[in-house]
Design a protein around this nucleic acid. Sequence first.
DNA 1: GCCAACGTTGGC
DNA 2: GCCAACGTTGGC
Length: 156
Amino acid sequence: MAYWLMKSEPSDCSIDDALAAPNATVPWTGVRNHQARNFLRDAMRVDDGVLFYHSSCPQPGIAGLARIASECRPDPTQFDPASPWYDPTARPQSPRWLLRDVQALRRTRLLSLAELRAHPGLADLLVLRRGNRLSITPVSDAHWQLIGALLAQPGR
DNA sequence: GCCAACGTTGGC
DNA sequence: GCCAACGTTGGC
């Protein structure tokens, strides 16, 4: 079992949006980076744990817990000219971009980016690395355990 | 709105 | 293959 941090803009799909979806499950559309795509395709497994992270918003940080709920399949938005994630170079016979379903499990307190950065035990968390822009990053067992413990504590 | 950092594109 | 220009991400 592996763990992941997945960024979502709450104006697009917040943890509450995901929890409100049928079966609390949403297709994770719009991954348009090869490294993140490769994580989806090669490294993820059904039931892997997910830290649901809100990005590009007033209060960035970890906002909930989720799980990987499906194998990967072509992301249909790459073929949709009306979609903001349309990729005119993608062809149905050889899709370039993939997605998995993600099932939201619960909302957590907001573990803010500032609080994540302030914790010495999370110095190596990939999403905190300078210049990091990957929307999907692996999370080590140790970091997962530590973040779980922080989420169980009251925030400041 | 600003800007640092990174990825992609395309000329050569 | 190099690298400058440009576009995007994402925090502030």
